[in-house]
Structures are given as structure tokens and as C-alpha cells.
């Protein structure tokens, strides 16, 4: 995609459809002002997606956020650190549909 002129990565996010997960990449071409949305279907049990950080530096924080919020493994990045949920010790990734408010027990790290 980058070779086609989509040089700007606007957003990476993910959606949990319960039976499968979907990673969403919103790309933008700063010359022709075109927007393009890529959707990648992922396995619900063992989600894994390749890192795009080599192409777009903007992906750094988005991938960290996606991995902690959805439990998606980012292939090609080692020791991916938590970003927003640094002190969270929950058992389940919070933006998955299986996570329900109040039902999941979690503890703060000491």
C-alpha cells in the first residue's frame, strides 16, 4: 500500500466480532487526499498480526494499544510494552466482548 502512495497511517484499531477478530488500518494519501481502509480478519483464539512499524512509525503506539486491549500478538515486535494499562492486572483484554463490566476480577499491582 505504501508503494501506491498511501504514506500516512491515520489509525489502527480492532473490532471483536466474537467468532473472529478484525484489525482495521486507516491509511491516507497526502497527495491525492484519498482514504483507504484495510480490514484483516484474525483468528479469535490465537490472534496475530504482522507489525507495520517498519513502514509507518505511527504504528508504534497503536500496536501497543491493540495488543493490550484485544490480546492480539504483534509478530515482529519483541517485548511489546503496555501503554495505557500499565498498572492493570486483569485476566482478560478489556475491549474483547467476553470482558463484561464488574464481572471480571482484577487486582492492582502492588
Amino acid at each position: 500500500m505504501k508503494a501506491k502512495g498511501f504514506d500516512y497511517l491515520s489509525k489502527i484499531t480492532a473490532v471483536d466480532y466474537v467468532s473472529y477478530l478484525e484489525a482495521v488500518y486507516i491509511l491516507y494519501n497526502t497527495d491525492s487526499k484519498q482514504m483507504e481502509v484495510l480490514r484483516v480478519k484474525l483468528d479469535a483464539q490465537n490472534p496475530e498480526v504482522d507489525s507495520v512499524m517498519e513502514l509507518y512509525k505511527a504504528a508504534d503506539w497503536y500496536e501497543r494499544e491493540m495488543s493490550e486491549m484485544f490480546g492480539i500478538r504483534i509478530a515482529g515486535r519483541q517485548n511489546i510494552k503496555r501503554l495505557l494499562l500499565r498498572e492493570w492486572n486483569g485476566s482478560e483484554p478489556p475491549l474483547r466482548k467476553s470482558f463484561v463490566w464488574g464481572k471480571n476480577d482484577y487486582k492492582r499491582l502492588p
Partner: peptide
């Protein structure tokens, strides 16, 4: 180049 690659807006 960096501004575009880092995705600032």
C-alpha cells in the same frame, strides 16, 4: 518526511 511517517496531524 518524519511528520508524515510519524502520523502527526
Amino acid at each position: 518526511e518524519d511528520a508524515i511517517n510519524y502520523g502527526v496531524s
